[in-house]
Computed example of a mutant assay.
Amino acid sequence: MNPLHLESLLAIVDEGSFEHAAHSLGITPSAVSQRIKALERDTGRVLVRRSTPATATEAGEVLVQAARRMRLLQAETDARLEGRLGRVPLSIAVNADSLATWFTPVMSDVAGFDGATLRIRIEDEARTLALLRRGDVLGAVTRESRPVSGCESLPLGVVRYRAVATPDLAAQYPGPDWSRMPTLRFGPGDALQAADLEERLGEKQQRPRMSEIPSSEALARATLRGLGWGLMSDLQADIHLRRGDLVTLDDRIIDVPLHWQRWRLESELLEKLTDSVLAAAQQLPAV
């Protein structure tokens, strides 16, 4: 199988289109198209969905994962031969709350990896595993402890969430009155908040006003501004609770265990990344 063809397939998946892939590879869109057609002819399968953005088919995902592994190993081989790291891509999936809190030291560590680049995909911790299965990323922070085929799973710790709001908002809806108090969520994929709200509402038919804030930091700021109540991790909420800017609305604690799943691949760079993730997670309570 031609490595250039695999490289083109990976570029399409990463960049989202034949045109953007061509720009990143320094060739024409026609050349990219010819490479993919040749690869599809060799495999006898359709590998790319010609959509916006372009995505890999099930057969294409198998080759994308292989291409990503080849790229990492090639970059590390070049580093050993030439005594330098040119541009080693580390694609990982992390949930927004982790990225905004305990995960940030990882960025500092990667900055010292002699020119390695970090590509982070933000996804709910219940969904990051899908990116790992497809080969879109080589590591993921996930709730799932059972390792994906070809991967290993390492426990990171627990992120603890509580329902919080400003004192004024809590006083305005005593009880708390979950059916009337304005609510915040990260987005339609916020499975944690959705399940928690359903439990709090029970069989009540009335649903509260709900605002969507697709950023962990902005969601915290919106909570502090009184736009609604929300689930906030202790890592974000503690300082505001101590100051009195926020109050907890009840005694319920939601513990979300996190795990680091990574490819089972002999890679010095991947080992360094894993060590960095595990070190950063030491600030979390144990699983």
Rank of each mutant, 00 (worst) to 15 (best):
P53A: 09
L235R: 12
G189F: 09
S153Y: 11
Q282L: 12
M210C: 15
A163L: 11
R207E: 11
P182W: 00
M232H: 08
M107W: 06
V164M: 03
R185V: 04
A218W: 01
W178S: 05
S215G: 07
L235D: 13
L184H: 02
E7L: 12
S108F: 08
S91P: 02
L270I: 08
P167S: 04
L154Y: 09
R143A: 13
S91I: 04
E125A: 14
E268Q: 13
M70T: 09
T128S: 11
L197E: 14
L258K: 08
A21Y: 06
L241E: 08
T248P: 00
L249W: 02
G228V: 04
T104L: 14
F113S: 08
P167M: 06
H5R: 15
L81T: 12
L90E: 01
L192W: 00
A165H: 01
S216L: 00
L9N: 08
E61I: 00
I27C: 12
G26R: 06
E266V: 12
R242S: 10
G139E: 04
D250M: 07
P3R: 13
R41M: 04
P155N: 10
L241M: 12
R71K: 14
A194L: 10
L138N: 03
A163V: 02
A170Q: 00
A54M: 15
P105V: 02
V277H: 03
R35A: 10
V110P: 05
P89S: 03
T57D: 09
A54V: 04
S267P: 07
M181H: 01
A220N: 00
D14K: 11
G202L: 07
A170E: 01
L197P: 00
E203C: 02
